[in-house]
Nucleic acid binder design. Sequence first.
DNA 1: GTCGCGCATGGGGACGCTCCCAATCCCTGT
DNA 2: ACAGGGATTGGGAGCGTCCCCATGCGCGAC
Lengths: 345, 345
Amino acid sequence: MGSARITAYDVAKAAGVSQPTVSRVFSRSASVDPAKAERVRAVARELGYIPNLVARSLNSGNSFRIGIVLAYLKNGFFGEALQDLSKALNKQGYSVTVYFAGNSSDEVDAIVDDLLADQVDGIVLASISLSNALVSRVRKSGIPCVLFNRGQSDPGTSMVTASNFEGGKQATEFLIKAGHKRIAHLAGWRKALNGVDRRDGFLAAMESAGLNPLACVDCHFRRNVAMEETRKLFAQNEVPDALFVANDHMAFGVLEVLREELGLRVPEDVSVIGYDDAPMASWKTFDLTTVRQPLRQMIDATANTLLNEITNPSCAPEKIEIPGELIVRGSARIPTGTARPKAQT
Amino acid sequence: MGSARITAYDVAKAAGVSQPTVSRVFSRSASVDPAKAERVRAVARELGYIPNLVARSLNSGNSFRIGIVLAYLKNGFFGEALQDLSKALNKQGYSVTVYFAGNSSDEVDAIVDDLLADQVDGIVLASISLSNALVSRVRKSGIPCVLFNRGQSDPGTSMVTASNFEGGKQATEFLIKAGHKRIAHLAGWRKALNGVDRRDGFLAAMESAGLNPLACVDCHFRRNVAMEETRKLFAQNEVPDALFVANDHMAFGVLEVLREELGLRVPEDVSVIGYDDAPMASWKTFDLTTVRQPLRQMIDATANTLLNEITNPSCAPEKIEIPGELIVRGSARIPTGTARPKAQT
DNA sequence: GTCGCGCATGGGGACGCTCCCAATCCCTGT
DNA sequence: ACAGGGATTGGGAGCGTCCCCATGCGCGAC
């Protein structure tokens, strides 16, 4: 019942005005006599009229929809990011459609086709593991696009990341200041710029302290791989006394191996520092010292950059780095002289 | 550059056919001479033509978009659900747009307006905490809608849930069989049917075993509330020896309080059972015995039900319950005679 | 050989809206 | 009182696609 949608024409008829006038009332594109506008609005409310965004899109060329391409949502970090991004963009009148990309090149092509068919006004590429092929195909499409938390050395595309190099350096310096000498890094993924930057920050800090990394292994940002590498590290002659792990998700697994399997105490036997400040990091179970990714600011920067590119297509791509912050909790030994801040949530 | 999108008309001109013929080739709506169709496809590929879904929507009245309304994505369970649902619907040619609802009634109205404006073909209401006002407003809109994992006693709306009553009963019986007598339930939310059903399953199992619940408190599905209630329970004279917690997210918090704050051993001092089988439940850190929500099947049922309602608007609403399964791990004492299965992941 | 049936095709008209433009109206200044 | 100008309004033409319908063509059957 009532399946017949009310159109602007119906409202116009009922309000005794022309259809374009109704359109003007709802799109504020031009001036309308205030009294008449109010009458139109009243009639529209009564009839339950809501402008049809599809028709508006077709006509105006703007769909007011943003596509966000993800690979996984299990990480938690991306779930939160999606939620915040959606809210930020909704506030500007855009809705967010999700696209999940696998890694096969067929899928990549299909996703770009979907994005084009859906006429999205802008694209956020949000998962680290998205293939580079996707980035270049998206770019070729000419649709404004921002890489979120997913660096790539493509100079033509805007991107927003945390200051990963600085963050890695900061975490490592914290470990060094606490007196650790045998420090290892469980790295992210050598093909993802944010993993690489964190690693480089680690290496730089080690070098300027005159220390040799005990190890520095690629873990693909995968929990299971990080756990396995941890086992290997502690099966060797010289075992680490501190680990810098490239994200929290892996760090949780590392903590599990250290405590449950190897019976080590954290931080007495081994210090652990993660990266992200995922919600779980503050749980007492983990109490993980970590580098916070300032999600809210990254989201805001992403939304602003994207909207800016949409509004102003000729503007140059931006590379934005948002500085992080070391959140000191209980999983890493605290350098003497550093006041441990009160519990940070 | 190249910002001028290719249209069916361009393809038609280049291929020497009429525009409707191009349309027919891409919508397979009617027969086209195979040779000609192939030529059209070749030209289209060369020109980079992709049918404009917006125009198709306007014309056909179907947007081929589904709206999914969520409250939170931090839980993890919903993130996974969103991902699976999106993939399932994409396979049928639908894309998924997300809408985040707060609880204020203004927001609810705004979301329904957005859904209507966007002309979504169907709606999935996916978060437990969505207000009932939203459900009834969506229903009034006449757009096909399925409640996912979020029961409500609205007979007019389809819903897909786990067999929450059975699950609650099963978990409780497991505790009883293990010899527990002082069993408490940290319940979900009294306004959400799946929380209520789990609770009722708990109560039914207790009653038929002739036991009185030590406690049964509403925790709103919130981790912090569950933690606080746990502290209160163990501050009393008679303390529980087993807890059935209405979801895993809360159970993780409960475990934390028991181990870290109260210094209790699990399951030696207290058994804990959760609900959901969230990915983290299998981590050795938690090793949580829990009732699995068969996500994949629930998603499939949701997608099928929704698509069925879209295709066939007059069909009766369906209430689908997917049976769960108790996943036995280490957080609850195991009844003698029950072989503990090998580690389940 | 002619008639007829059926598939393939193009023309024209929506879908609901926005934009451009011309027409109208009222108000002000002289 | 009249001309001029600004604000307001309606008409009409699309936006890119799919659907209805009429036409045309080929082939089989009588």
